[in-house]
Amino acid sequence: MEGPDAPLVLVTGFGPYPKVRVNPTATLARAVAGSPRLRRLGLSARAHVFETSYAAAGAQAPGVIAAAAPVACLHLGLAPRERMLRVETRGENRTRALSPDVRGNRPALRALRPGSPAALRSAAPLGAILAALRRAGLKARLSNDAGAYLCNAMYFWSLDEARASGARRPVVFVHLPRPAPAPGTLPRRRRKTVRPTDAELTAALVDIAIALARAGRR
């Protein structure tokens, strides 16, 4: 049963951003946090959905992490053009002013956190996570580039929080494809897709949360 000392995983997603009116990472983060399977294993998770803006997410991230005091962090981002899951291996301390955030702003500084390392690698069990996803029948790969948007920023902020506090907290960022439409929502000729469903993604992300919780409490 879940108790006050149950290992807690912080699971985050993002809200809408330009050209994405509904961000599935928000729903998926909440689904993972509410998983009965976690509770049966004596684990727990908390979901937080960040506004997709540099100002809001950058200001809120330290407080959200500190308040949760998690043993591990699982961050989710949407990669709309992908057809597989990308398990990111590192976050970079840099911005590229390519796309505006949901407020229409671009980052003003080249570094996300001046004075912090140029890049930080995840200490999470990435190989085991990748293997578990593939055993579940999902297409997945490791990636060395978390992109040039809020996804990379969130990953670096979280990794840097763990580094600065001395926490031995495994942190991982997973880029997700758009989930497949529910059966019956599209004409028959358009139903064929290789994208995973919401249920498949939720189950896979719960597996990742379990692996992270176990790694974080060792």
Rank of each mutant, 00 (worst) to 15 (best):
E2P: 10
P4G: 14
P7A: 01
L8C: 11
V9F: 00
L10G: 02
L10C: 00
V11R: 13
G15Q: 02
G15S: 09
R21N: 14
V22E: 15
V22C: 13
N23Y: 04
N23F: 05
P24A: 03
P24D: 01
T25D: 04
A31G: 13
A33Y: 04
S35K: 01
S35L: 02
R40C: 06
G42R: 13
A45P: 03
H48C: 05
V49P: 00
V49Y: 00
T52D: 06
A55V: 11
A56T: 07
A57W: 03
A57P: 03
A57F: 01
G58H: 11
Q60H: 09
P62Y: 12
V64I: 11
A69K: 06
L74F: 13
L76D: 01
G77V: 04
G77T: 06
P80M: 07
P80C: 09
P80K: 01
E82T: 14
R83I: 10
L85S: 06
L85I: 05
E88H: 08
G91N: 03
E92T: 05
N93A: 03
R94E: 13
T95Q: 08
R96D: 14
A97D: 09
S99V: 14
V102W: 12
N105Y: 12
R110T: 12
R110C: 11
P114R: 09
P114K: 05
G115V: 00
S116N: 04
L120N: 06
S122N: 03
A123N: 15
A124M: 00
P125I: 04
G127P: 07
A128H: 13
L130R: 05
A132G: 12
G137Q: 03
R141V: 04
R141E: 03
A146V: 05
A146K: 01
Y149L: 02
L150Q: 01
L150N: 03
C151H: 12
N152K: 07
M154P: 08
L159C: 02
D160T: 04
D160C: 10
R163Q: 10
R163W: 09
G166L: 10
R169M: 15
V172R: 06
F173D: 03
H175N: 05
H175K: 09
H175Y: 04
P177S: 06
R178P: 00
A180N: 01
G184R: 12
T185P: 08
L186N: 12
L186D: 09
R188N: 12
R189A: 11
R190M: 14
R190Q: 15
R190C: 14
K192C: 08
K192R: 15
K192A: 15
R195V: 07
D198M: 14
L201H: 02
L205P: 09
I208A: 07
A209C: 08
L212R: 08
L212N: 04
A213V: 09
R214P: 09
A215H: 08
A215V: 06
R217E: 02
